[in-house]
């Protein structure tokens, strides 16, 4: 897995890495990916994936309103807020 492109994946994950961090991270991740290569030897033909260990299905809630959160104390501790809004740097990128 030498082709592991840390910069690309880090951008997808919105994680900043310093240049000094890149190399060791890259080699560690390549090692981990090398380790999990062993899964390639398992025959999984016709095997359903398990996304939940237990077979629970059809869980609903009723369409009944519940008390919303008193957001003011929460906004007061937010990284940045203005009035009742959360505030972020002006968006110049377009949405995905």
């Amino acid at each position: 897995m030498s082709s592991f492109d840390l910069r690309h994946v880090a951008r997808l994950a919105r994680l900043h890495f310093t240049d000094a961090e890149l190399k060791p991270f890259e080699s560690q991740l390549s090692k981990i990916l090398g380790f999990v290569e062993e899964l390639k030897e398992v025959n999984v033909d016709g095997v359903e994936p398990t996304s939940h260990p237990l077979a629970v299905a059809n869980v609903f809630r009723a369409d009944e309103p519940v008390q919303s959160l008193d957001v003011e104390p929460f906004l007061a501790r937010a990284p940045k807020a203005r009035g009742r809004f959360f505030e972020v740097p002006k968006i110049i990128e377009d949405r995905s």
Partner: peptide, 13 residues
């Protein structure tokens, strides 16, 4: 997202 409240910031509701 509200963009017209400030030149520097966008606001989230």
């Amino acid at each position: 997202l509200i963009h017209d409240q400030s030149p520097e910031y966008s606001h989230v509701d």
